[in-house]
Amino acid sequence: MKRELFALTIVFLIFVAFPAALFGYQAQRTTTTGARVIALTANAPANGGWQPDAIRVNVGERVRLRIAAPDVVHGFAIPALDIYVDEILPGHVEEIEFVAARAGRYPFACTRWCSVDHWRMRGVIEVIDPGNPDPPLPTIAPPLYQQMNIDIDAPHPAQNVPAQRPSAARGARLDVSVPGDLRAQSPSNVFAELRGDPALKAYSDGQLWDVVAFAWKRASGDPASPGADSALARGSKLFVRDCAACHGETGKGNGPAGRNLPGLAAMQTDSRMAHGAYAKRGPADFTDAAQMLGASDVLLQGKVLRGGMGTGMPEWRTLYSDQDMWDLIGFIRSFVFDYGMSNAK
């Protein structure tokens, strides 16, 4: 009987005490570390995407995200909270801890091109203020292209195209200034205004295009402080991370992930598209001066923040700050304008 009792005790310990000890240890560990541990699984969208894709935390709560990637390499970013995990290898777990100081909805996304549907891999962290769990929704100003009533789906061919790639460096050496806010104007229109100015009659077309290139480079950031933290460098980083897979490293619209975009096949055959200019096109070619120089920065911003265009282009409004957006557009201009960067083609 003693033997039986001993064996029974051992079995009881295995089935009851052992699991209780495991979960008790985890509970105690969570309490003492003072962080709420949330397991987040990163699967490619075809395998379920983020699980969970919606997380609720309280303002001021210390949160430890444990992100596992069972299938392929993923990245993780909550841009609004400045949280980035560059790489989560398959079968590995990455941890990141944060405290959300303000209530709000913070989208998060995968930052690695994990699959064709990578851009669908998004989720949201909702930070709740327990004292005010249902605050009125903040009023969000409509984007500039809506305020200015710009149809971003309309064709925007450039009326003027330079014979050679305009150089910002050459433009800087010319004593010509371009007044006004450039964001609402296309480079082609600015060139036309300069060309129409009798005072600039002595300048060739090429020189005036150089002036335009310099004006855009100056508008995209502080040319006096180039370097890793410059607006163009930040834009370049965003481009490489989020755009290059479809638009190509060289901006020619020939990235590998752009070849099988959802909607592309339909777009290539659907003659009912509102604007024929887009027919038979995949991701935009940023080196195409005839298109790019006819678009204002506001128009480009509209395309980036809204996405769509029937190509599977994702929206970036929820992930990008205004600064991110302008940095990126500033960099995209460098595919047509020679800013003296290493991406010169």
């Binding site: 052992f18 699991p19 699980q51 444990r66 596992a68 069972p70 398959p90 777990v93």
Partner: peptide, 14 residues
Amino acid sequence: VLAILAGLFGTPAG
């Protein structure tokens, strides 16, 4: 027992 518990409640990263 641990194998089953870990499978049910642990990380999905194999």
